[in-house]
């Protein structure tokens, strides 16, 4: 089905999540990369040795969550824009998400914007916590938002209300 829709299902995403204990510890990366393609920048970008070594460049990356610090280097390095950072410990009611963003204008820090799911539907509101657009990111900017806990597994994009 995924190869018809391009939209990962909930169970596909849940399979990529680390253990419950790890999720309660702090920020972690999730790679929504489900297809073997010849690509490895996630592993070369990671400074924490958290991406298991590739036997073949077509391997689907696997994260060693003992090493992953949730630093977010992979977020702007992934050519497929498939890496996200999740911090479920952000607050009682909200989860922090870091996502790649290659559009202009950039959202404003502290503004409230639409939180979009994998099909581009607005499923709630997101608060913009941080906007990183430094030169090292090479135009794949990194947006940090907080969203209600109930929707953090669905939110993977933002809308600035431009239709």
């Amino acid at each position: 089905m995924f190869n018809k829709t391009g939209v990962a299902t909930k169970s596909m995403v849940e399979q990529k999540l680390p253990s419950k204990q790890r999720r309660e510890k702090g920020p972690y990366a999730i790679f929504e990369c489900f297809q073997e393609i010849p690509c490895n920048p996630c592993s070369t970008a990671c400074k924490s040795n958290a991406v298991k070594a590739f036997k073949n460049i077509n391997d689907i990356p696997e994260i060693n969550y003992d090493n992953c610090t949730g630093c977010g280097l992979c977020v702007s390095a992934c050519p497929g824009l498939a890496c996200f950072i999740i911090d479920e410990t952000y607050s009682d009611k909200e989860v922090m998400l870091k996502m790649p963003y290659e559009f202009l204008p950039l959202p404003e820090v502290a503004s409230t914007i639409d939180a979009l799911d994998r099909e581009g539907n607005a499923v709630g509101k997101a608060k913009v916590l941080k906007v990183q657009d430094n030169k090292n990111l090479d135009h794949t900017n990194v947006i940090t938002i907080s969203v209600p806990k109930e929707i953090f597994l669905d939110v993977r994009s933002i809308g600035l209300g431009r239709g």
Binding site: T5, G6, C78, G80, A82
Partner: peptide
């Protein structure tokens, strides 16, 4: 590549 598909899908 499905990562490219997901990129445009999440933009609606």
């Amino acid at each position: 590549f499905l990562v490219h598909a997901s990129k445009v899908r999440r933009l609606g």
